[in-house]
Design a protein around this nucleic acid. Sequence first.
RNA 1: GCCCCGGUGGUGUAGUGGUCUAUCAUAUGGGUCUGUCGAACCCAUGACCUGGGUUCAAAUCCCAGCCGGGGCGCCA
Length: 431
Amino acid sequence: MRTHYTSGLKDLEDGAEVTICGWIQDIRKLGNISFLILRDREGIAQVTLVKKSLGDEAYKRISNLNRESVICVSGILKKDTQSKLGLEVIPNKIDILNEAEAPLPMGVIDRVSVDIETRLNHRFIDLRRPEVLSLFRIESSLSRGIRETLEREGFIEIHTPKIIATATEGGTNLFRVKYFENDAFLVQSPQLYKQIMMAAGFDRVYEIAPAFRAEEHNTNRHLNEFVSIDIEMSFSTDEDAMNMLENVIYSSIDFIRRNNLKDLEILNLKVDLPERPFPRIKYDELLDYVNSKGIEMRFGDDFSSEALSVIGEKYRGFYFITRWPMEARAFYVMPFEDDPRYGRAFDLQFGEREITSGAQRNHIYSSLKENIKRKGLNPDDFSFYLEAFRYGMPPHAGWAIGLERYTMILTNSKNIREVTLFPRDRRRIVP
RNA sequence: GCCCCGGUGGUGUAGUGGUCUAUCAUAUGGGUCUGUCGAACCCAUGACCUGGGUUCAAAUCCCAGCCGGGGCGCCA
């Protein structure tokens, strides 16, 4: 049907024959001449409708089409024009492919703001807005940049089950689903499976897949279903995992800086390459800092929102929080040899916001089993997992990035729902 | 789950007891206009979340419900 996207027209000669297809964004009627703005994925173009050359009937029919109707326009490209876009198409033939109803549930280009709620209710229309599309192009590039980096580093992409019997890391609640005659759950993370893959000898694996958390949080940065980018690497320490994460973050930002210039421009965003290495700050140091700022926090506590905002004022870019108390982290974290009160866990932060959690894992069966008990969990529930540690498990480490949260942070979005096509939150499961 | 706050045309809002027969913008319908580009101008259309209660009188006050927003905790 189409010969060019609207963005391709500028590279053509004056007088070229083109067919462009898309949505009618607007029609400015001036009596015997009308200007139709056609939008496709790549931009907009002006189609100039002249009554005299189209004939009364066709002119009336086309210039009265509702906004957001879908058409294809075949005609001659005119580059010497008074249009601000610098070009226009003089149509020979206009195919009306789908007429939109009016009024629209929400405007695409109207000069009124729209609540996020209304936007999500009619998301397909909202997604027609160029600045919204740009967010998702950036998200696409981020996951592609991450994927390409991991592939280059020798990671194998895997897919682990999303329906499980029970027993994940503890901490967050799971969604219960009916599984024939039994109950099953949706996974909160591929953590245990990606570790098992280390025992399988895959050495380096990654997975980009949804994770589900049945937490009743109601914030701008949590979803009940999100895309988790998980990696696990064998014969590696927490330091190796942090270096890999740094590499992935740097490369993915570099990727969007090279591939999403137009999107960054549309969003009026400037994304700087971060300086490497990212600072590594010990938990204890931040604990003292937070307390010195008058926020009460005890050893073993996680950082509260208030604490993180104070820390975020001091450290604005990317930085790691390292050497966490074991009691603040999951059972699978490897304790330090010199002081087992601390574990080889880390968080990657961007200012006050958390992007990633990771750790070197405890690969010693007996010690891992002890830690499960210490967390008040039953090792019997983890037998499928623990078995992998009994017959040859290499030391390993890994991390997980929340794709939407990462995109949110880089695009400076105020709400994680902005960068989620069809978000699943406490109240929303439609559309 | 806890604490605040809110629900007015298709969309976003103003209005905190009585000329509200409800403001403005945008949208939609009609009209004028052959160079618009946030087109302009004229006319029209269209709304008080639901159910109770208080009052002579409720968009406005009270209660309940439903829906939503912000924050916290939890985390990615």
